Every structure is written in structure tokens, then in C-alpha cells.
Amino acid sequence: MPDIAEATAALTGIAAAAQQGAGDTLRVVLLVSMVGGALLAWFLLRGYGRGRADEDPSERSGDTSARGASGDAGDANA
């Protein structure tokens, strides 16, 4: 007849090994979130250093006057 203590120890060891938790999953999630955060920061910050020092503010392509598209002083939007 087998020893009950050895069988109990073996079953306890197997049960403990099966309940290790989500350690590997959390490591992967942490690594992916850190890489994603770095890529997001790079994407958002990459445009701030391009051509701002030598550019004249009046020559910006997106800059429109408050008078409207025509630029006329008699425009209704003036």
C-alpha cells in the first residue's frame, strides 16, 4: 500500500504548481504598455521640433485672418 504522506505531498506540489497566477501575463501586459507608451510619446512629440525656429508666423499655411477668406476690410466677418 502506498504511503499516504508521499501521495499527499505530491498532490499538494502539483496543485501549488498549477496555481502560479498570472505572472507571465502581467509581465507581457506591462512590457507592451511600456513600449506602447514610449511609441505614443514619440509620435506626439516628434512634430514639436520641426521648422519652428526659422518660420515666420505670418507665413504659416494654416493661419487665416479674422476678416475671412477675401481679406477685404469691408468683409462681413471683419
Score class of each variant (00 low, 15 high):
Ser70Thr: 15
Ala18Gln: 06
Ala73Glu: 15
Ala66Phe: 09
Arg60Ala: 07
Asp54Leu: 13
Gly47Lys: 12
Ile14Leu: 09
Gly36His: 03
Ala69Glu: 11
Leu26Phe: 07
Arg60Glu: 05
Gly47Pro: 01
Gly74Asn: 11
Ala10Leu: 08
Ala9His: 02
Gly74Ala: 04
Phe43Trp: 13
Leu40Tyr: 10
Glu6Cys: 02
Ala7Gln: 08
Asp3Cys: 08
Ala73Pro: 03
Ser61Gln: 14
Gly21Ser: 01
Leu26Cys: 04
Ile14Phe: 08
Leu40Glu: 03
Ala76Ser: 12
Ala69Ser: 15
Leu30Ile: 08
Ala76Ile: 08
Gly49Phe: 00
Ser61Thr: 09
Ala73Thr: 01
Ala66Cys: 13
Gly74Cys: 00
Gly68Lys: 10
Ala76Lys: 14
Asn77Met: 11
Ala18Asn: 05
Gly71Asn: 01
Arg52Ile: 06
Arg50Val: 10
Val28Thr: 04
Ala73Leu: 09
Arg46Thr: 04
Gly74Arg: 01
Gly51Pro: 00
Gly21Arg: 00
Pro2Leu: 02
Gln19Met: 05
Val35His: 03
Ala66Arg: 15
Tyr48Phe: 14
Tyr48Ser: 13
Ile14Ala: 15
Ile4Met: 07
Thr25Ser: 12
Asp75His: 12
Ala7Trp: 06
Val28Glu: 12
Arg27Met: 06
Met1Trp: 03
Leu40Val: 12
Ser33Arg: 05
Val35Lys: 10
Ala41Asn: 07
Ser58Leu: 15
Thr8Leu: 14
Ala78Val: 01
Arg27Ile: 00
Val32Ile: 03
Ser61Asp: 02
Ala15Met: 06
Ala10Val: 08
Asp3Trp: 01
Gly62Ile: 01
Ala17Met: 05
Val35Ala: 15
Gly74Ile: 00
Ser33Leu: 10
Gln19Phe: 07
Asp54Met: 09
Gly36Ala: 14
Ser33Glu: 09
Ala18Arg: 06
Gly49Ile: 00
Leu44Cys: 13
Glu6Asn: 14
Asp72Met: 05
Gly62Ser: 15
Ala15Glu: 12
Asp56Phe: 04
Ala22Leu: 14
Arg60Cys: 04
Gly13Gln: 00
Ala15Tyr: 03
Ser65Ala: 10
Gly13Trp: 01
Met1His: 07
Gly74Glu: 08
Leu26Ile: 07
Arg52Tyr: 08
Ile14Gln: 05
Gln20Asp: 09
Pro2Glu: 02
Arg46Phe: 09
Arg50Ser: 13
Gly21Thr: 04
Pro57Cys: 02
Ile4Val: 13
Glu55Gln: 13
Gly47Arg: 09
Gly21Asp: 02
Asp63Val: 05
Thr8Lys: 15
Ala10Tyr: 04
Gly23Glu: 08
Thr64Phe: 11
Leu44Thr: 14
Leu26Glu: 11
Asp24Pro: 11
Arg67Pro: 00
Leu40Ile: 13
Gly74Val: 01
Asn77Asp: 15
Val35Trp: 00
Met34Lys: 12
Arg27Val: 01
Pro57Asp: 09
